[in-house]
Design a protein around this nucleic acid. Structure first.
Lengths: 200, 200
DNA sequence: TATTAATTATAACAGTGTTAACAAAATCAG
DNA sequence: CTGATTTTGTTAACACTGTTATAATTAATA
């Protein structure tokens, strides 16, 4: 008699319900305000039921992190599938990554650590504008002394800042056995590429 | 009589005490576990005293964010001071940025949004290794079909990933009135630079 | 149908940020 | 120096949070 199978099925239905409810709540109010009690309310079960399906709240979030990487992987897989030129393929991949991030903001934020500072918060830190000036100034300086003095310096500054932050945050996560020297190589390599690209 | 001055002075001492205690707690246990009650305990005052100095917990964190940017600005200021060559100056600046981030990890994490995923958490997501393979593969592909086939593909992959993540996260924060087209320009520009740098 | 096992709920613990209501201390006026 | 007033600080609560021990209910078995 398939009563154990039915039970298994029902268990999985509840599990799916938890994840679906969590996702709905996240879309409404963001990750920050997701709580076990809200999920329990939504699926019309008591709180401990959730703990019989997931060890803790982190385990639920990790489920979405996995799902996020699955989705990203699919997007990347499809992006450069028929493209033969490696350079063009890489560009397509970059764009696929980009579009995934912005079309799946909630996923991306979870995958790379929640609390992204919001626009309003950033604007309340005046020190940031001085920082912006500093970096932007240095980039402008490089552009002025190059062949293509008409290059959009704001665009280049943005690229430069992004590069730096990306290098830092990826390496903060990936602090494996790699020696510091390798990380420094990555930085130098990226900046050299950036400079060369400006100077032509 | 300078009693109002003395009161003002005492008030500021308490305020400083709050910030100092908060900082000490952060260094011991990280931002995540910083609480108003712990600060109150540390300064040997009751909780509401803290609220008479800061509107809420966020205001305290924002104080440190400001301080962080001040420190970063100083580091950047000093970095390329005597360097005349713009390209060399930019490189020095990049390194200064880098070293600030890693020598002031707590500040950097707060400045760019708290929850950076820890190494352990990252390792628990197997999907990440497929993602790694995808991106690494594309980069390898580009390198193989270039003049310098002996280029370190792992290093370049790292650079590429960092660039992408940096672009995304900076633009997620800076979602101002800028049209999407400009953001796409930044991405294309950065990737083109990366490719050109590989192809020589 | 009675007994045992699986399932679900209640209620609590130990935290969190925040604030209203109250007590103590310091200052000022007479 | 005493009494009223303002400032300062504390207690205790509210409304949450994640997590879990205990108890009640329901379902499957003998």
């Amino acid at each position: 008699m398939g009563i154990v199978e039915r039970k298994q099925r029902q268990r999985e239905e509840v599990r799916d319900g938890i994840l679906r409810a969590a996702w709905a709540l996240v879309q409404e109010e963001g990750w920050q305000s997701l709580s076990i009690r809200k999920i329990a309310d939504a699926i019309e079960y008591s709180v401990p039921v959730i703990y019989s399906h997931f060890e803790n709240k982190d385990a639920i979030l990790q489920e979405f992190t996995k799902e996020g990487f699955r989705k990203l992987n699919n997007a990347l897989d499809e992006s450069g599938a028929q493209e033969k030129n490696p350079a063009a393929g890489l560009m397509l991949m970059a764009k696929a990554y980009w579009h995934f991030a912005f079309q799946n903001k909630e996923y991306y934020q979870l995958m790379y650590g929640l609390g992204m500072p919001t626009c309003e918060k950033v604007r309340q830190v005046p020190e940031l504008s001085k920082f912006t000036d500093l970096l932007h100034g240095a980039v402008k300086n490089l552009i002025t002394n190059s062949k293509n003095a008409e290059t959009d310096s704001f665009l280049k500054f943005h690229t430069f800042w992004s590069m730096l932050h990306g290098l830092v945050s990826i390496n903060m996560v990936e602090r494996t056995a790699c020696p510091d020297s390798l990380h420094e190589l990555v930085l130098e390599d990226a900046v050299r590429g950036f400079i060369k690209n400006i100077q032509d």
